[in-house]
Design a protein around this nucleic acid. Sequence first.
DNA 1: ATCATAAAGGATAAAATTATCCTTTATTAT
DNA 2: ATAATAAAGGATAATTTTATCCTTTATGAT
Lengths: 167, 167
Amino acid sequence: MKISFIWDSFPDLVSRVKKLIHMFSKTCQYAIKAVIYIHKQSLEGKKVGAKEIGQEIDAPDAFTAKILQVLVRQHVVGSFKGPTGGFFVDKSHESKTLKDVVLAIDGDQLFQGCSLGLNQCSEENPCPLHFEIKNVRTKIINMLTIKSLKQLAEEVGDGTTVLARLA
Amino acid sequence: MKISFIWDSFPDLVSRVKKLIHMFSKTCQYAIKAVIYIHKQSLEGKKVGAKEIGQEIDAPDAFTAKILQVLVRQHVVGSFKGPTGGFFVDKSHESKTLKDVVLAIDGDQLFQGCSLGLNQCSEENPCPLHFEIKNVRTKIINMLTIKSLKQLAEEVGDGTTVLARLA
DNA sequence: ATCATAAAGGATAAAATTATCCTTTATTAT
DNA sequence: ATAATAAAGGATAATTTTATCCTTTATGAT
Ligand code: FES
Ligand code: FES
């Protein structure tokens, strides 16, 4: 999945400072997809290994394993070692949401930090975007909490949504 | 402005995959602040140099200069070389908004790309966040277009908002 | 015309993020 | 008990983003 840009062909014409900024870090995108996949498999009572997860979400498996370590420590998902081991979720993970996944991986900058990078978001000394950003944050938090991870897993299960795509 | 984390003190306790993800890249944060500052100075008919801009927005000035090159090429701001030269805005930049700044620096991923990193955002083959993300995007675009750059500059001018903070 | 100034541009360097590999530890099946 | 399996963890590498420095080009002041 190598992404190419039109301006890659004309370095001297544009020589633009290119970037691929998303709302979530790449690591966090993997984490979100991994957790949804684990939920999906847990619906059928299956535990899954890091390798399988990596393949299903189109992420490098060693890196996926690292991310899963964090998620286990933060109790977003559970794990067992050894044969028949793997990652899973049970009753104890029921209350977790995508917001918890994002917090575990990307931290709270998206929710709490100053969007323009001032040392902290402050009502007394606000940056130019401060007051507008609140609506955005409300929507983001809503997006990350409105549906349960189980629901999201079911949507993937019935083909309504997908965790990976080919070309 | 060195940011320290509580878990830096307990590497073995947490050894978390830490990250500082914002909505905008650091480069884009600089760009936004730089453009607002240029507008502010242009209100008083002043052109400003990259060095001064860097200092006012608390960004490295050589790096700020690079960012400004891109913004000039994208016609978000204007520039003149030589003595009495510098960066400025005039009538021809009146219609530009923060959205143009973000597009110039971070590209359109935030507005168009798949939030979970699938090769492209697609209605037919949507990722689990696809339908929810739309509301968020509407809000983000609103935030970046509701106020003119001139307005934002005036708010900084009268002290309502700030581009940098000390501690 | 010459000089000083400031942006433009090229080449590198530093830091952070993403990715891989290999060893250790826990668990299960035999 | 032993061997096989899979997560946990450590070390390191590749890539991308951020940052610096130095040279060239354009412009205005003298
Ligand atoms: S978002 Fe910048 S100060 Fe609150
Ligand atoms: S945001 Fe992922 S497919 Fe549209």
